[in-house]
Write a protein that binds this DNA or RNA. Sequence first.
DNA 1: TTGTAGGCGTTATCAA
DNA 2: TTGATAACGCCTACAA
Lengths: 340, 340
Amino acid sequence: MDKNSLRKITVHDVAKQAGVSTATVSRVINGNDTVSPELQTHVRDAINKLGYRPNKAAHHLRSGKTNRVGVLFADIRNPFFTSVLAGIENYLHEAGYALILGNSNEDAKIESMQLQAFLDEGVAGIILSSVTNSGENYQQILDTGIPILAMDRIPKNFRVDSISIDNARAAKQAALHLINLGHKRVAFIGGPEHISTAHLRKRGYLEALQEHPDIKPIIELGDFTQLGGYEATRNVLAIHNDISAFLVANNLMTLGALQFFNESKIRVPDEIALVGFDDMPWATSLQPPLTVVAQPTYEMGKIAARLLLDRINNPNSPIQQVTLETELIIRESCGGLRFA
Amino acid sequence: MDKNSLRKITVHDVAKQAGVSTATVSRVINGNDTVSPELQTHVRDAINKLGYRPNKAAHHLRSGKTNRVGVLFADIRNPFFTSVLAGIENYLHEAGYALILGNSNEDAKIESMQLQAFLDEGVAGIILSSVTNSGENYQQILDTGIPILAMDRIPKNFRVDSISIDNARAAKQAALHLINLGHKRVAFIGGPEHISTAHLRKRGYLEALQEHPDIKPIIELGDFTQLGGYEATRNVLAIHNDISAFLVANNLMTLGALQFFNESKIRVPDEIALVGFDDMPWATSLQPPLTVVAQPTYEMGKIAARLLLDRINNPNSPIQQVTLETELIIRESCGGLRFA
DNA sequence: TTGTAGGCGTTATCAA
DNA sequence: TTGATAACGCCTACAA
């Protein structure tokens, strides 16, 4: 904050001020080489005195390196992703990385464009909750050498680091909870088959039923939106009027199911028991408070960011596939034991 | 996607392929000068054939321009901001801009660091929902010439483009709704005074009461979080056990109030009428469905992005302060007429 | 209308 | 250990 600083301060100014060459200044900034402690001090003093800030564009151009990370979500408006995003943001910011955000909006074409835009921005890595379920679609990115981390949704044949929950186990646990309460007619409201989480949650539901051959599967798939949950619930009840319990496989669809119950004057848990996904802020504000499969969303974001930065700093380390446990939080939306 | 492309394709390659100079290539890319249609075609063909993508770092370094926009929110986890963010992302992406996201987490120090980080990234503009209420704090940014747009929260003495809702009018309308239903004891759960929206909503509440001198203000301020709403509601009811209606000034605090009502077996709307802020996805899933002041969040985001890009492309145009209207959506959380 | 050439600020190579 | 110097890929006077 000195002098008449119309012109931007550069390494040259710092070098002159410190009485060294620009190369030495660069070395000090990047902590790369061995610069004598004395000169290091001089350089740092000069940097502080002049208020020097390195030009990132020049750094990027010359070195090919950036501290930008691209985060591409399939649906930015889903509160699940928002919470994960907060965790990612927190970790990246503390690590000195900038977060470039994209939303593919469940559209493979947009996803592809956004990924290309990330490459153009020169991101050092990408966190992706993918729209498609096939790793082959991302081969082009992998070929550039830019690391990708698969988050939440893990496409098939995608050999990259990943972070997800044990979706099948989570859904199975939730279904068993309902079954153990005595429910014989347990419907599952799921998501699109091409989304890995939706697929696995359905599988978990089916696994639970396999342990109880007397209970027949009742499955309806929606699109992971509130309206989708509303319609799926309505459709199921239109056909099966004897259902006593619902397991709904994502947070917005759970809201949709509740909306339908409200409008139809169906009482929870008296007439219908309900387990939802994701422990969102409203879970305890609902009447009755919602029993849910809780995912550690914020933590998931932080771990995603950590794994990606690890990979960036260590390209040849073995691939890591992290799976987080979920927790079934039992509140009041399932009521007590049933004897149907 | 041709040749053995180990090396990155540059303007030189395109120039050679098209049989022109690099200057001409540059002109075509930037649509700047007048290049003969014929050469334009040659250049574009070459670009397509070689799959050329301009190097943004070099472009930035040389021209000083970028297509990056910084978005800094005070609380990224608040669903209100999430929805606005989705609108911003949509507009920016379609305009070919990259979105750099930051979260100040209601912390002025972090806000300041994030803004500095945006400058380091060379953003072309900033969308800010500020932590502080004083425009002077942002003078340093303004001095750089990088445009800022104030979103939702508008600090005092901040002469920049802005987008917000008419907070006072919105709160007044909501309070009058409760009063007109016959409520004489209407409590207001507000947010921190230093946040402009919180301040204005409180003012709106007081304006409504001024038209009804027989109704005395009952005000408790929280911190715009769910827990804050919970505690504020509890505190108010501990002192005033005759309250029949609540107006809660933000969405998370509304959830907190509902949580308290649930735990205390207070029935809505039979015992307490409630108007909340923000028409969030869960509003219709609650029992009873929530009467709310709806803000056009997604639109707000799109307009914010539009205003900022307008400013970037037209630095000297007059400052615009856009205020959006809200809508009181009447559902069932206030019940019918009261005769207290 | 088009081309030539220099430099944006940084880092990497090479020599000292 | 340190310094001089040549790029990185692009844009923009200036010249033609």
